[in-house]
Design a protein around this nucleic acid. Structure first.
Length: 460
RNA sequence: UCCCCAGUAGCUCAGUCGGCAGAGCAGGUGGCUGUUAACCACCGUGUCCGUGGUUCGAGUCCGCGCUGGGGAGCCA
């Protein structure tokens, strides 16, 4: 429907972000967005309009003389409207610019049972209306930041000479990471029971596929959805999440940690430089210590300690832990938290873990007891990166696979890469949502992904 | 899968010892002011999560179930 004051192709539409950043008054601007709140007065009214382009709203002055003033009840909280008006300096306090409306048109009305109100809602409540929560300040800010950071992931790897590889989401490897997999089924075709002729699953990691490409293109990465059918009920686990996995040929574990550290610092730097307005919300309302914590990540060199050293530190800490601390046992959440939050007070790499608690593909260290693995532990969110140098020696890998009883038929192709021009190589995986939790101070993974999938919950 | 907590108006929550179901916000109506999570006055709002039990009487006590949250394990 053609609007009287909006000619498609002729009228230039402005975003709220552009207008608020304007250096001058502008006559005849056109804006479309959603009413956040209306302040009704006797002879005039104010509408706060948000179009998602930024956190801030544009204040729209509706003069009593306008026909729109008579229809003010239509422009209720949540309604979608188009406004034509003049951008003028605001005589009121609190904003530099405001839009003096000339014409307003209701695009989509919003009845009074609109669940989002002009007040703070709990995260738990907002999760029950995940289709509407992007309209709140907090989720809007989060989603803009999420988008910015996703772009930054690609620019980082591009700058570092990495190639993006799209690894398969459907996979036949049923023990990629020993985690529980979602199985994939399709309608039966002809006589075939299985669509692919064998069982298929959703990927739990692109790593094995990525290794084959690193041994051809040198430096590669993938950034895609990952699926884990683990029955985890925590604030840090989702059944569907996004993971960033780089893989480098001719690189050892130290190179791997160097890359991980540079990567994390780059993302934090990007956040502080390009997402300032949205980040202010998290600094002010979500976590008061967040700004300091992010500055520390950007400035400080990450500590690197071996697993063996970490066990010593924990044993000498004088703290009584609920779970036992002994060489050969995996670090528990409370141990990781102590290391990152109390001992280092910042991100810390723990490397060279006992062979028996790590997967088959990690490279055996000369000591015969440990493998070249590393975890980056961050305060509050725990393990944010897990990586390793991969076992590139054919005989070592074959022996490790036999020990862990992996079928040679299923993984022959993987072993092949060690037969033909094998080279040392390393990589890691970073949970994108875990990083977003670190970045924003949000404490529940369900609140950094648009439609969270957790055990027993897949609404939308 | 295990342990703990919660579920009362659209939202956030109070509800004492078991004795008539409450407040703030949101919403409606009117007023007022260059306001800004506006303000002032008035108005309406309930399957007290479900189910079974104890009791003269249950939002309140007990059993079971459901949902949400926190923690553990598993992991990113």
């Amino acid at each position: 429907m053609e609007k009287p004051f909006f000619k498609k192709g002729e009228t230039k539409k402005s975003s709220v972000k552009e207008l608020l950043a304007s250096s001058r008054a502008i006559e005849g601007v056109f804006v479309q967005g959603w009413v956040r709140t209306a302040r009704d007065h006797k002879d005039f009214a104010f509408l706060e309009v948000n179009d998602g382009s930024c956190l801030k709203n544009l204040q729209v002055l509706v003069d009593g003389g306008l026909p729109a003033y008579g229809a003010l009840a239509d422009f209720s909280t949540g309604s979608a409207i188009s406004i034509l008006g003049d951008l003028v300096e605001s005589p009121g306090k609190g904003q530099k610019w405001e839009l003096k409306a000339k014409e307003i048109e209701l695009v989509g009305s919003c009845p009074p049972d609109y669940p989002l109100q002009k007040k703070r809602h709990s995260d738990e409540f907002l999760r029950t209306i995940a289709h509407l929560r992007p309209r709140t300040n907090k989720y809007g800010a989060l989603l803009r930041i999420r988008s910015q950071l996703a772009q930054a992931v690609h620019s980082f790897f591009c700058d570092e000479g990495f190639f993006l590889v799209s690894t398969p989401i459907l996979t036949a490897s049923d023990c990629e990471g020993a985690g529980d997999l979602f199985s994939v089924s399709a309608p039966a075709h002809e006589n075939k029971e299985e669509f692919f002729g064998k069982k298929a699953f959703l990927t739990v990691s692109g790593q094995l596929a990525l290794e084959t490409h690193a041994l051809a293109l040198g430096k590669v990465y993938t950034f895609g959805p990952t699926f884990r059918a683990e029955n985890s009920h925590t604030a840090r686990h989702a059944a569907e999440f996004w993971m960033i996995e780089p893989e480098m040929a001719f690189a050892d574990l130290a190179d791997d940690m160097d890359l991980a550290e540079k990567f994390v610092k780059y993302l934090v730097g990007h956040l502080l430089n390009f997402c300032q307005e949205d980040m202010e919300l998290f600094f002010a309302f979500v976590d008061k210590s967040l700004q300091e914590a992010l500055n520390a990540i950007a400035d400080k060199t990450f500590e690197r300690i071996t697993y063996t050293k970490a066990i010593e530190i924990l044993q000498k800490s004088g703290k009584s832990f609920e779970h036992p601390v002994a060489w050969g046992l995996d670090l528990q959440t409370e141990h990781e938290r102590f290391l990152a939050e109390s001992f280092v007070q910042g991100p810390v790499f723990v490397c060279d873990y006992p062979t028996q608690i790590k997967p088959f593909y990690m490279r055996a260290n000369p000591d015969g007891k440990t493998v070249a693995a590393m975890d980056l532990l961050a305060p509050r969110v725990g393990e944010i990166i897990g990586g390793s140098q991969r076992e590139e020696r054919h005989d070592f890998l074959k022996a490790a696979m036999e020990r862990q009883k992996l079928s040679k038929e299923e993984y022959g192709w993987y072993l092949d890469t060690r037969l033909y021009g094998s080279a040392p190589h390393s990589g890691f995986g970073m949970g994108f949502e875990r990083f977003l939790m670190l970045a924003t101070g949000i404490t529940n993974i369900r609140d950094v992904i648009s439609f969270p999938r957790t055990p027993g919950s897949i609404a939308y």
